[in-house]
C-alpha cells in the first residue's frame, strides 16, 4: 500500500477517506484535521491559554502534543480518580509527558472533593462507575479551569466517542443531551468555561496511530470499570457498521452536527443558576456533584 501523497510505503490506511499515508504525511493529515476543527468552531485563539484535560490515554496526550506542535499555549489537568494501579500508571504517563516537554500539569484528586475515590463512590451510589466519574470530571475540569484562570478546556474526545455518544442519545431519545452534543460548547454563564473537542474529526484508530508514530508513551490498558460499559457496546456496533460501509460513523456524526442539531438546539431553554452549596453552575438549587458528594458521605 502506498502513501497517497508521496507514493512511499504507507503506515496507515484510512478507508473512510479512501487513502493511505506514510508516517510524515499521516502526521501532517492529523494536524490539519485538528486545525480545521479549531478554525471551524472558533475553539480558541493563539493568544488564549488552553487547559488540556489529560488521562494518560492516547487521545488526550495526542491532543496535547498536536496543540503544542501547532504553537498553542497549554497546560495539562490530570484528574486522579483513585482507581487502583490504573490511576497511578495513567498519572505517571501524564507526568512524564509534561516533564519531558517542560509543561505545567495540574493534578486534582477526585477523592479530595467528592469524599472518596471512584471505586468507593460506585459502592456508595450503586450506579455504574462511569456515571459518577463523568459527572466528577466535568465538575472538576470546570472548577480547575476557573481557579487557574483558563477560559477554555480541551478534551480528547474523538470521532468514535462522539458517534457513540450520539448513538446512545438517539437510541434513548435523550432530548436534553442532543443540543449539548457539539465539538465546542460556549460559555453560557460567567462560571462556565468553554469546552472544546479538537479531535472530533479523527477516529480512534487515527489518534492511536498518531500517538504511536509520535513516540508518545500512553496507557494502553483500559480502565477496569469500563468493562461492560454501554458506550463500548455502542462503539462495537458502530465499528461493525463502519467495516461494512466505511464513512458511516463520520456521516452519522457530521450529518447530525450540520443538519439535525440546530433543530434540537431550538428546543433547549435552560435557566442556569449557581449551586447554593458550592457556587458552581447548575439548573437546580443544589448541583448534581454536591448531591453525589452527599450520597458518598452517607455511605463512606
Amino acid at each position: 500500500m502506498k502513501c497517497k501523497k508521496c507514493a512511499g510505503p504507507a503506515a496507515l490506511e484510512l478507508r473512510r477517506h479512501n487513502a493511505a499515508f506514510c508516517s510524515p504525511h499521516f502526521i501532517e493529515f492529523f494536524r490539519k484535521q485538528v486545525a480545521e476543527a479549531i478554525h471551524k468552531h472558533r475553539m480558541f485563539t493563539r493568544d488564549e491559554p488552553i487547559l488540556v484535560a489529560v488521562s494518560g490515554g492516547k487521545d488526550s496526550l495526542a491532543l496535547w502534543d498536536a496543540l503544542l506542535e501547532d504553537g498553542y499555549q497549554t497546560a495539562g489537568l490530570y484528574l486522579d480518580l483513585g482507581i487502583f494501579d490504573y490511576s497511578q500508571e495513567s498519572k505517571a504517563k501524564c507526568e512524564a509527558f509534561a516533564a519531558s516537554r517542560g509543561l505545567k500539569l495540574y493534578v486534582e484528586r477526585v477523592a479530595d472533593t467528592v469524599g472518596a475515590p471512584i471505586p468507593d463512590v460506585q459502592k456508595a451510589t450503586r450506579r455504574p462507575a462511569c456515571s459518577a466519574c463523568g459527572l466528577s470530571k466535568r465538575y472538576l475540569m470546570n472548577r480547575a479551569a476557573l481557579e487557574h484562570g483558563y477560559a477554555v478546556v480541551a478534551t480528547g474526545h474523538n470521532l468514535d466517542d462522539e458517534a457513540a455518544t450520539l448513538f446512545g442519545s438517539v437510541l434513548n431519545w435523550q432530548m436534553e443531551a442532543l443540543p449539548r452534543q457539539s465539538p465546542a460548547l460556549p460559555s453560557s454563564h460567567p462560571k462556565l468555561v468553554r469546552r472544546v473537542k479538537p479531535l472530533y474529526r479523527l477516529s480512534e484508530l487515527e489518534t492511536a496511530a498518531y500517538a504511536f508514530l509520535r513516540g508518545i508513551d500512553y496507557i494502553v490498558e483500559e480502565c477496569p470499570f469500563s468493562t461492560g460499559a454501554t458506550s463500548l457496546a455502542h462503539k462495537e456496533l458502530l465499528n461493525r457498521l463502519e467495516e461494512a460501509s466505511p464513512g458511516s460513523k463520520h456521516n452519522f456524526l457530521f450529518g447530525f452536527l450540520d443538519k439535525a442539531r440546530p433543530a434540537f438546539e431550538r428546543l433547549e431553554d435552560v435557566v442556569l443558576k449557581e449551586c447554593s452549596r458550592c457556587g458552581q453552575v447548575t439548573t437546580g438549587e443544589i448541583c448534581a456533584f454536591c448531591k453525589l458528594a452527599d450520597r458518598v458521605k452517607q455511605h463512606v
Partner: peptide
C-alpha cells in the same frame, strides 16, 4: 517501530503487537 497496513506480509520471524484502539467508558 513501524505500523503495518493490511496488505503487509508477515512471516515466522516476526514479532507483532496487535494493540486495540478502543477506549472509554460512559463518560
Amino acid at each position: 517501530d513501524e505500523l503495518l497496513t493490511g496488505d503487509a506480509v508477515v512471516g515466522d520471524d516476526d514479532v507483532l503487537e496487535v494493540r486495540p484502539v478502543m477506549s472509554g467508558g460512559g463518560a
